[in-house]
């Protein structure tokens, strides 16, 4: 599966050939350096390990720096991609060019944190009326039945921490691949704040 590490830059709009404005998310893909691989004999599966985005040297300890020894400067992100499409060898630099003839991609990122959120925001509960004497506004309502079973089932949807989850958005159309700016533009939104790391993969369900 073809995949690269990128950085969410933000959203904008572009005109397509028919003059329609399309909302796009801009993902910057700096050079992805191949740091190694996993093989069937040694590891029981095949994969490629990629690293991207430069990091200041004083933020890297010896254990991390050692993994980049003789290959490149230490990188901020290191990701393993199972069954990589392309034949790659350690030290290769992969660019946004790899997506030049890809129509759809899946993008994985860490969603924006929402803090401690109530049931309406977190699970889409209906809530109650705001006015006309209603005393039931944004509560979650009943959580269980009566004397049987006399308890709330585990996993019941309630208020709690929301966001900062790993989220994948599938089947995003690739609008443009710009090799000069090192960016890929996909139609629609992707998870996470701007400047956050995302993983762009070829779409699993759509070609």
């Amino acid at each position: 599966m073809l995949g690269l590490i990128g950085k969410k830059i933000g959203m904008t709009q572009v005109f397509d050939a028919n003059g329609k404005l399309i909302p796009v998310t801009v993902i910057k893909i700096e050079d992805n350096i191949v740091l190694g691989g996993r093989t069937e004999q040694q590891n029981g599966y095949t994969a490629a390990v990629l690293g991207s985005v430069d990091i200041r040297k004083n933020l890297v300890n010896k254990a991390v720096a050692g993994q980049y020894k003789d290959i490149c400067e230490p990188k901020r992100y290191m990701v393993e991609f199972r069954d990589y499409d392309k034949e790659v060898k350690t030290g290769d630099a992969l660019t946004v060019k790899e997506f030049a003839d890809t129509a759809f991609v899946d993008v994985t990122g860490i969603s924006k944190g929402k803090g401690f959120a109530g049931g309406m925001k977190r699970w889409g509960f209906q809530g109650g009326r705001k006015t006309h004497g209603s005393k039931f506004h944004r509560d979650i309502g009943g959580t269980a039945m009566s004397s049987t079973p006399a308890r709330t089932f585990p996993g019941h949807h309630m208020a709690g921490h929301m966001g900062v989850d790993k989220v994948t958005v599938q089947n995003l159309r690739v609008v443009k691949v710009d090799e000069e700016l090192k960016v890929i533009m996909v139609k629609g939104a992707i998870p996470g704040p701007a400047q956050s790391a995302v993983i762009v993969k070829k779409a699993v369900k759509k070609r």
Binding site: G10, V26, M185
Partner: peptide, 12 residues
């Protein structure tokens, strides 16, 4: 932000 400006300027 500059990247987005560059993309928009291409089309202006």
């Amino acid at each position: 932000m500059d990247t987005i400006k560059a993309i928009e300027e291409q089309q202006i």
